[in-house]
Amino acid sequence: MVWNDACVKLTQSKSSNSEEQLVMLIPESCADLASCSVTSTDGEYWIYPKATSGQRVKIYCHNIRTNPKEYITLKYTNTFVEHDPSNFMTRWQTCRTDYKLPLKSAIFSRVAMNIQDMTVIGSDYTFAVRTGNFKLEFGEAQDCNGYSSMSGCHRFGNAVINTLGTGLILDRNAKWGLINAHKAGIQNFERSEDGAEISITCAGYCGHCGPLSKPLRLILSSEFVSDKEARAEVCRM
Score class of each variant (00 low, 15 high):
residue 191 R to V: 12
residue 194 D to I: 01
residue 180 N to V: 01
residue 156 F to P: 01
residue 218 L to P: 02
residue 223 E to Y: 04
residue 172 R to T: 15
residue 157 G to D: 02
residue 198 I to H: 04
residue 197 E to H: 08
residue 224 F to A: 07
residue 181 A to V: 03
residue 170 L to D: 02
residue 212 L to H: 01
residue 221 S to K: 08
residue 167 G to D: 10
residue 182 H to T: 11
residue 224 F to E: 10
residue 159 A to Q: 07
residue 225 V to H: 02
residue 177 G to P: 10
residue 190 E to V: 10
residue 157 G to P: 01
residue 183 K to D: 15
residue 160 V to T: 13
residue 209 C to Q: 05
residue 160 V to I: 12
residue 156 F to M: 11
residue 204 G to V: 02
residue 202 C to G: 00
residue 183 K to M: 15
residue 205 Y to I: 00
residue 200 I to R: 00
residue 171 D to W: 12
residue 188 N to C: 05
residue 159 A to D: 08
residue 212 L to P: 03
residue 167 G to L: 09
residue 180 N to T: 09
residue 161 I to L: 13
residue 176 W to S: 06
residue 204 G to R: 03
residue 170 L to H: 07
residue 164 L to G: 00
residue 225 V to E: 02
residue 208 H to Y: 15
residue 194 D to G: 06
residue 167 G to I: 01
residue 220 L to G: 02
residue 199 S to K: 14
residue 172 R to S: 15
residue 160 V to W: 11
residue 182 H to D: 13
residue 164 L to P: 00
residue 197 E to R: 14
residue 169 I to K: 08
residue 213 S to C: 10
residue 182 H to L: 12
residue 188 N to K: 14
residue 218 L to A: 07
residue 197 E to V: 15
residue 200 I to M: 09
residue 176 W to G: 04
residue 212 L to A: 04
residue 164 L to W: 05
residue 211 P to M: 01
residue 158 N to C: 00
residue 185 G to M: 05
residue 210 G to V: 02
residue 206 C to K: 03
residue 195 G to A: 04
residue 200 I to F: 01
residue 228 K to T: 08
residue 216 L to Y: 08
residue 188 N to R: 13
residue 155 R to Y: 11
residue 215 P to H: 11
residue 227 D to W: 05
residue 201 T to F: 12
residue 171 D to G: 04
residue 218 L to S: 04
residue 168 L to F: 08
residue 170 L to R: 06
residue 180 N to Q: 14
residue 206 C to H: 08
residue 168 L to W: 06
residue 167 G to T: 03
residue 178 L to K: 02
residue 158 N to F: 00
residue 170 L to S: 03
residue 215 P to G: 13
residue 184 A to E: 07
residue 180 N to A: 13
residue 180 N to M: 11
residue 199 S to T: 15
residue 185 G to P: 00
residue 177 G to K: 12
residue 162 N to R: 05
residue 189 F to I: 00
residue 210 G to W: 04
residue 172 R to E: 15
residue 201 T to R: 13
residue 176 W to C: 08
residue 203 A to V: 05
residue 176 W to D: 05
residue 166 T to K: 04
residue 219 I to R: 01
residue 179 I to H: 01
residue 218 L to E: 03
residue 223 E to S: 02
residue 203 A to S: 15
residue 228 K to L: 12
residue 199 S to M: 09
residue 189 F to H: 07
residue 171 D to C: 07
residue 189 F to A: 04
residue 163 T to V: 05
residue 180 N to I: 00
residue 207 G to L: 07
residue 190 E to T: 12
residue 228 K to F: 11
residue 164 L to H: 14
residue 181 A to N: 11
residue 227 D to T: 00
residue 211 P to Y: 03
residue 177 G to N: 12
residue 189 F to C: 05
residue 205 Y to P: 00
residue 221 S to W: 11
residue 159 A to S: 14
residue 172 R to H: 13
residue 162 N to K: 06
residue 229 E to K: 06
residue 183 K to T: 15
residue 161 I to M: 13
residue 154 H to R: 13
residue 165 G to T: 06
residue 220 L to T: 10
residue 172 R to N: 14
residue 207 G to T: 05
residue 219 I to H: 03
residue 185 G to I: 08
residue 190 E to Q: 12
residue 192 S to F: 15
residue 213 S to A: 10
residue 219 I to N: 01
residue 173 N to F: 12
residue 224 F to V: 14
